[in-house]
Design a protein around this nucleic acid. Structure first.
Length: 554
RNA sequence: GCGCCUGUAGCUCAGCUGGAUAGAGCAACUGCCUUCUAAGCAGUAGGCCACUGGUUCGAAUCCAGUCAGGCGCACCA
């Protein structure tokens, strides 16, 4: 584990300080990286160059001092100073043995860490309005949110995944009316559809369900009453669909939080009242305003409109206030990039309530452009012909869909090519990674058929058999897995896991092609089987974080 | 006009709180299946890290400005 390397350097640094060789009070964070070239050893650190200004000495001079101390540490066979002041560390083979043992022993737990221990974090994502099916953009948010939650859990954080349901307001009324009108149409009435009504085919489906369930019951009901009934029915039906889509996408939430419940519990009124007491509320032109400009927002925002109805923003601040009150150490919101204009006003709430808005982290998901063989697929809600998550999932499969969404960092636009995602060709990264796992399981199966027993664990004698550069590279990469998880969690960048896995597969496949695992040499066979087993375990653990399956056969 | 995101090989993208000669896949060209899965592998070629300044031992990375693309600037949700 590279964590172990940090310990080695820390220990050497402490020794140098005790001996009076280093004086600086505040030591910089220790950064270790895999050496880029073989001659630079196994690991390198730029520590001396960071320390130089503090010590007021030349980097190389400090490097010599630290290197001398590192040389005395366990597992270190050699430690050199190079270039402008890099410290290159060469480790004993037994170090790698401890890594492999750790992987084989830990199994599914390998990679987990505790950097997040004791920290309660809420991740809120998707939160799409229940007025229609999830589209492809929601899918990206779902993949990022769910994977981030998995990664942070693996890093020791206490994670709650939450979905906020916008189940009140005009959109719900529009939904109710849209379904109601379709219902009347089904009963043979001539209907004029208002400009703002929802026109997707799913509206007709819900109307048909209403008809099946209630017959002509609402044919002559007063419109307002009917719309209320239809709104409720449609909202819960569409939410059920969303929940099903997400479930099939491998996403399950810990909590579903209803906007309506905020109003019912009086939390919206409470929040406004608290802001009023704090002096950030005023009336103007018949509306009630929140003075967000006090906190850097572009303009003040309306909470209660002149017609007496509350804005979406009013419930949103009540919701975030409630999140704060629930005692999370950190709140993560995952929003579509088209909502970035809301950041300032939500942060204003935190500041107005006297909370540190740094506790809130907003991840913006950039847009997804759907392509087919490089040609854009028509999108846009206008005609109700937008591409749904369900359609894409059905076409390319859950695994490819999730994996693809995690192949880009969130703040980069993403071109999703359906044909590439479907293709069973080497240029499709999903298959490349899954194939790595399946191939190894197949090799292990082959060995077992031949009656070869995989040893329980590594010993030095077996490790000596793994004397190729490719094998050392693989083991080093396996060793960095826990740290990749940790950094992925700390930086909240789940795509790092995807790249880690592509790199792992990229190390394994060439190795496989060059070397035979099962041979006449019993020790060599055992050693390589153990290495392969370790690779497949790490691949499986990584894929599990992404919510992508690790098939035994392909 | 203001704000946010993006700009790295022909294409799609990595590049971890600044580090040693900037990486991968695809496309192109040359090869590899009687051997544990060819959904794979080996090799060749490909670069003013958008541009200009600044910060320092050191910049694709940080700062300022410029240019280009996307998105957002409601008493909408």
């Amino acid at each position: 584990m590279r964590v172990g390397i940090v310990k080695i350097v820390e220990s050497a640094l402490a020794a140098a300080k005790n001996a009076g060789q280093i004086k600086a009070e505040k030591l910089p964070d220790i950064i270790i990286e895999k050496s880029k070239k073989e001659e630079f050893g196994d690991f390198s650190t730029n520590l001396a160059m960071l320390l130089a200004p503090l010590e007021k000495k030349a980097p190389r001079q400090i490097a010599e001092i630290i290197a001398g101390n590192i040389s005395k540490e366990k597992y270190v066979v050699k430690c050199e100073v190079a270039g402008p002041g890099f410290i290159n560390i060469f480790l004993d083979k037994s170090y790698w043995l401890s890594i492999l043992e750790d992987i084989l022993k830990s199994g599914k737990d390998y990679g987990k860490g505790n950097i997040g221990a004791g920290k309660k974090v809420q991740v809120e994502f998707v939160s799409a309005n229940p007025t229609g099916p999830l589209h492809i953009g929601h899918g990206r948010g779902a993949a990022v949110g769910d994977t981030l939650a998995n990664v942070m859990k693996a890093a020791g954080y206490d994670i709650t995944k939450e979905y906020y349901i916008n189940d009140v307001g005009r959109q719900m009324e529009t939904l109710g009316r849209s379904v109601y009108l379709r219902y009347l149409e089904l009963l043979g009435k001539e209907i004029q559809f208002p400009e703002d009504s929802y026109k997707g085919g799913y509206i007709k489906d819900v109307a048909r369900d209403m008809l099946t369930k209630f017959g002509e019951k609402y044919k002559d009901t007063p419109e307002a009453e009917a719309i209320s009934v239809f709104s409720k029915f449609a909202g819960s039906a569409l939410l059920k669909n969303i929940e099903n889509d997400l479930k099939d996408f491998g996403v399950e939430f810990d909590a579903w939080y209803s906007e309506k419940s905020l109003h019912e519990k009086g939390l919206v009124a409470d929040t406004i009242e608290e802001l009023r007491k704090r002096g950030f509320i005023y009336e103007s032109e018949g509306a009630l305003w929140f003075k967000t400009t006090e906190f850097g927002d572009d303009k003040d925002r309306v909470l209660i409109k002149a017609d007496g109805s509350k804005t979406y923003f009013a419930s949103d601040i009540a919701y975030h206030r409630d999140k704060i009150d629930r005692g999370f150490d950190s709140l993560i919101d995952i929003w579509g990039a088209d909502h970035h204009g809301y950041e300032g006003r939500v942060r204003a709430l935190f500041k107005a309530l006297g909370h540190d808005d740094q506790a809130l982290k907003i991840i913006f998901i950039q847009l997804v452009a759907l392509l087919r063989n490089g040609v854009p697929v028509a999108m846009g809600k206008r005609e109700g012909e937008f591409v749904t998550l369900r359609q894409v999932m059905d076409e390319v499969g859950k695994d490819a869909c999730r994996f693809f969404f995690l192949m880009r960092k969130s703040d980069a636009h993403f071109d999703f090519d359906l044909e590439l995602a479907k293709s069973q060709a080497p240029e499709n990264p999903v298959y490349y990674v899954q194939y790595c796992h399946a191939r190894i399981r197949s090799i292990i199966g082959f060995a077992q058929e031949k009656g070869i027993k995989i040893p329980e664990s590594f010993d030095l004698k077996l490790l000596e058999k793994l004397d190729q550069k490719e094998e050392a590279d693989i083991i080093k990469h396996l060793a960095s897995f826990p740290e990749v998880i940790e950094r992925s969690a700390v930086h909240m960048e789940p795509h790092r896991i995807t790249f880690y896995l592509m790199e792992l597969a990229g190390l394994f496949h060439p190795y496989y092609n060059k070397n035979r695992v099962v041979t006449e040499d019993a020790d060599l066979t055992a050693a390589r089987l153990l290495l392969c087993d370790a690779i497949s375990k790490v691949a499986a653990n990584g894929l599990a974080l992404l919510g992508v399956s690790a098939p035994e056969k392909m």
